[in-house]
Design a protein around this nucleic acid. Structure first.
Lengths: 154, 154
DNA sequence: TATTGTTATACTCTATAACTATA
DNA sequence: TATAGTTATAGAGTATAACAATA
């Protein structure tokens, strides 16, 4: 059996622009991790608490939030407790099913979410220093990528 | 003082391709979080352990690794303990300064790092389904971005 | 004196399993 | 019976402060 006959992913990577692009994107994102953590820490938020605030665009059952955060439902209890103590979210009855509790952002929670979102939306130097043409091209490609994601099964 | 006179970041965002591009990149990355966590979990690794394996390209003082992972040195002790128990890294004397301990990947650690890297390097559908031209353009733009990052102070 | 890595402490996140209350 | 959320538990990550060994 000739192992060279059918190149594996590691070999293909060098010729595959998609793999290369994804690797470079990961690098740019990795370089941004420090600022991300530092920003949340300024607001006394742990990453999962931020993910929760960000996910609560509309009243959301706790179990559904667990799915969005890719964690067990039991964790959502604690995360919610701490956000609720700070007055950032509320537990609300669901009406149709008395087992379900809907999480809702308070006014204070919405304000905090918007403030942090604005801070994190500032692009890092690696992106901000691209030429205007590159920035526009990148935006357009990413728009198409997000469309792909929306149509994907996952 | 007219608050409308000088639009803030939130207003600028809609006209700024860099901000838009960064926001969309964040969206693509966020959508990939589930696969990232699931992949590490397959190998019984927590994210910080993976970041450590990934950072250890060469023998590295523990304090320097703490800087790379943006955490306190005291955490590196525990993370290293667990990686060392599994035979993935080694603590080695530094020679010139007997306070310093260098962390080195073992053969087993290098193999595991390469295997995981190969898995994570597969682009998500949102990127893989872009046209060949878009993938090449994205790769080229990201190459310039990474260059920017390398030249940046941060 | 200052620095490297460790230990002790306290808090948060994480999954699993057992539980309550609903359905 | 099955499901939504809680509690209990144990292991992992996190920062702070105090410490030993070394510089």
């Amino acid at each position: 059996m000739a192992t060279e006959a059918r190149p594996g992913p590691a070999v293909r990577a060098k010729d595959d622009p998609g793999v290369e692009a994804w690797g470079l994107m990961s690098e740019v994102f990795g370089a941004n991790r420090g600022r991300f953590i530092a920003t949340l820490s300024e607001f006394d938020l742990w990453p999962p608490q931020w993910f929760a605030l960000q996910a609560l665009d509309e009243p959301t059952p706790m179990g559904k939030l667990a799915g969005m955060l890719h964690c067990d439902s039991s964790n959502i209890t604690g995360i919610t407790d701490r956000l609720e103590q700070r007055g950032l979210v509320e537990r609300r009855a669901a009406g149709h099913d008395r087992r379900v509790k809907l999480l809702v952002l308070t006014r204070k929670g919405r304000n905090l979410r918007d403030e942090i979102h604005e801070r994190l939306s500032v692009p890092p130097a690696s992106i901000a220093e691209l030429s205007a043409a590159d920035q526009r091209a990148l935006r357009d490609i990413m728009l198409r990528a997000v469309e792909n994601g929306a149509n994907s099964s996952e």
